[in-house]
Structure formats: structure tokens, C-alpha cells
């Protein structure tokens, strides 16, 4: 991933900026009040920026969903807080994990361990509610939910 620079702006918030693959410099200012401002730096004056758009927290979520990817982390952390008594975990499958190559149905994961696989992240794309014929590849990240013991058991079954 591209390197993102973080700058603390006292009294304002935090500025994140990075250079796109096309060589344009862009930044996001996250204000203390939750507002986010997307800016592009000018070519003739790389210190100055023009503001593209200003987003409130709801807009940010909308845009994030359209762009996909990293929003999953935020959503998961919210879900994790809501599920008191449940455990929610991320399990990354390695090359030699027992789960790789088999489908979810074949593994009979839920009947064996009690924990459910609610989503899989593959190549940084979230795939929600995988069906029984979903086949695991190495590098997949399974998001699993259940009681603490169940989750632990499923983790061992999937990854060895």
C-alpha cells in the first residue's frame, strides 16, 4: 500500500496525505468534529491545496462504502462492541492451513465447532455471507463469530 503521512494539526485534527499512483498529491483532513475534507495539492505550488469536498460522518460512511475495502475494519470494530458475550475474530489462512482448498460445506465448520463464518476478505475485498460451496484460498481472511471457545476451536480447525 502507498505510504500515508499523518500530520497532527493542533486545534483542527489530523491531516493524512499521500501521492497517488498517477503522481497527484492528495490529502484528507479529519476534523475534531468528525468532518472530513478531501483536498488535492496544486501542481505549481505543492504546499497549497484546493478543497474538493467536505463530508460529515454519514457522508464519509457512504463514500467509504462505495470505495469499499478498509471500511470493513471500522464496521467490524463497531460490531465487536455491540456483541457482548460473543467473540468476533479475524482468521488469516496460510498456505498450509487445513481449510485451504476445501469448501465451507465440506468443512462442516458450524456443526463441528458452533462458530459461524460471517464474511471473508479476499484481496482486500469483503465477501459477506459466504455459502456452503465457498472455497477457501490461501491468504483469505475469515471473519468468524461465536462464543469464545467456539471461535477458538474454529480458528484451530481452519488454520491448524
Amino acid at each position: 500500500m502507498t505510504e500515508v503521512q499523518e500530520t497532527i494539526l493542533p486545534g483542527v485534527g489530523v491531516r493524512h496525505d499521500f501521492t497517488t499512483t498517477e503522481g497527484r498529491n492528495m490529502g484528507v483532513v479529519v476534523h475534531h468534529d468528525g468532518r472530513r475534507e478531501i483536498v488535492m495539492y496544486k501542481d505549481d505550488d505543492p504546499d497549497a491545496c484546493s478543497s474538493i469536498v467536505s463530508l460529515n460522518p454519514t457522508d464519509t460512511q457512504t463514500l467509504g462504502e462505495i470505495l469499499g475495502v478498509s471500511v470493513v475494519a471500522e464496521v467490524v470494530s463497531e460490531v465487536r462492541q455491540e456483541l457482548a458475550g460473543f467473540s468476533l475474530d479475524w482468521v488469516e489462512l496460510g498456505d498450509d492451513s487445513p481449510g485451504v482448498g476445501g469448501t465451507i460445506g465440506e468443512g462442516e465448520y458450524r456443526s463441528k465447532t458452533g462458530a459461524s463464518i460471517i464474511a471473508v476478505i479476499r484481496n482486500a475485498r469483503p465477501l459477506p455471507s459466504p455459502g456452503p460451496d465457498f472455497t477457501f484460498f490461501a491468504g483469505d481472511i475469515a471473519i468468524i463469530v461465536g462464543s469464545k471457545d467456539e471461535v477458538q476451536q474454529l480458528r484451530t480447525t481452519l488454520c491448524g
Binding site: 500530520t7 497532527i8 494539526l9 483542527v12 491531516r15 496525505d17 490529502g27 483532513v29 475534507e37 483536498v39 495539492y41 505543492p46 504546499d47 497549497a48 491545496c49 484546493s50 478543497s51
Partner: peptide
């Protein structure tokens, strides 16, 4: 003036 994101603002 839309300068919050400017680099000198820090």
C-alpha cells in the same frame, strides 16, 4: 481561504 489542508498550516 481553504488553507486548512495546506502544508504550511501545521
Amino acid at each position: 481561504l481553504g488553507r486548512v489542508g495546506n502544508r504550511e498550516t501545521k
